[in-house]
Every structure is written in C-alpha cells, then in structure tokens.
C-alpha cells in the first residue's frame, strides 16, 4: 500500500515537473544534428615543409531557438536572437586528409590526438552564450556567436562570425570560419623530435565548418 501511494506521489511530481518544463520551453523549437546532412569541420594549418588539414564529419549537439528566432531570411531582423546551443565534435573523429579529401596519415592523427589530450578530453565543445544577427545579405543571415570553446581541456571565450541559411524547411545551416592559435588552448605546435626539430608546425590555424541541424 505504501508502495502504491509512493508511486502515485512520484508520478504526480513528475507530471508537475513536466508541466513546468513545458511551460519554460513554450515557443522554443529544437533543432538537432543529423547524420548525412552535410556537416563538416575543417582545421587547416601549415608547417615549414607543407600545409596540413584535418577534417571531422561528425558534429553533434543542437540548437534551441526561441520566439524571436527568424523562420526565414526574409523575416530576420538585426539584434540578439533567442538561442541556446551546445556543439560537440568527437576528437577521435578528426582525421588528417589530403587536398583531395582522401585520408592522409594515421601517424599524424595519433600526434593530433595526443596534442588534443584525447584520452581525457573526448570532445571539442562550443557552448553558445549570445547569438547576434548583424545583417541579412542575399538570403543569408550574418551572425556573431559568442560563447565558450573548449579544446584539449582549455576553455576560451570566443566570438565566432558565421552565416546562417535556411536550405529547406525545418533545416538550418551554419557556416563560418575563424583564425586561432594552438597556444591559445595550451597546445604546443608539434615539432617532431624524429626530424631533429627541423620540421616546425605553425601556431596559427584556421577553423571552418558547415553545420546542418534539423527540426525535431
């Protein structure tokens, strides 16, 4: 009997909590990353012997957009947008590639994983704090995404300029690129001992991405 009563009480509490959550989320819409939607992250850099590039095709997470978030480019107006987002890229899904996109070198991947402290830090994460629509140009919304980027366990506040388009109903596509330095995240640019220190990787990198999310 006590068990039944407890169960009913628990159920009521859950219903009440659900109602509160529903109330809080009213007017908000969730978009989630989907496989095969065309998401891609690219990190490019250089060294004194050749350029290099690393690609990731798994970009997880999602965006919750609020009442003032535009349904299309035509209705978009400059200003702060209601949006919450966390994006994650599994470190081990990043692979070095050649210019033509084919796999490059597994040993290079292992070096990168070491530098990104993959064993302790499984993901690269970006948590959005403020999303500002600057202007609308040719059906493209130009945005500034402020937030925290966590790489190799080091968190930095960044502003990420990006574009948002509406490729089709129920879909949002975010694209952008930003310059950064490895040392900003405590990563010493690789200087392979095997080459007697003659090969030096540049500190500067360029991060670019396409991220497509689909309405749930």
């Amino acid at each position: 009997m006590r068990t039944t009563r407890g169960f009913i009480a628990g159920g009521l509490a859950l219903l009440l909590a659900s109602a509160v959550v529903t109330q809080a989320a009213e007017g908000w819409t969730e978009f989630r990353a989907r496989p095969g939607a065309g998401s891609k992250a690219l990190i490019e850099g250089s060294s004194n012997i050749h350029d290099w590039r690393v690609q990731g095709l798994i970009i997880g997470g999602g965006v919750e957009v609020g009442p003032n978030f535009p349904a299309d480019a035509a209705s978009a107006k400059p200003g702060k947008l209601d949006a919450k987002s966390t994006v994650r890229i599994p470190v081990r899904s990043l692979k070095s590639i050649k210019e033509d996109g084919s796999p490059y070198n597994a040993a290079m991947d292992d070096i990168m994983y070491g530098k990104l402290k993959m064993e302790e830090q499984k993901d690269i994460e970006f948590t959005l704090s403020t999303l500002t629509l600057k202007e609308v140009k040719d059906k493209t919304c130009l945005l500034d995404a402020e937030g925290e980027l966590k790489v190799a366990g080091v968190t930095k506040k960044i502003t990420l300029p990006m574009e948002m388009t509406f490729p089709e109903a129920n879909r949002l596509k975010f694209s952008g690129q930003v310059d950064a330095k490895m040392t900003d995240f405590g990563i010493e640019p690789p200087a392979p001992a095997i080459a007697g220190g003659l090969i030096k990787t540049e500190d500067a990198i360029k991060f670019s991405f396409d991220w497509v999310v689909v309405k749930r």
Binding site: I49, A107, M108, D110, I111, Y113, P192, A193, I194, I199
Partner: peptide, 8 residues
Amino acid sequence: APAAPAAK
C-alpha cells in the same frame, strides 16, 4: 611523405 613525428 613528410616524416611523421613520433606519437604515442
């Protein structure tokens, strides 16, 4: 191929 630095 460029020399691969030693990695774990």
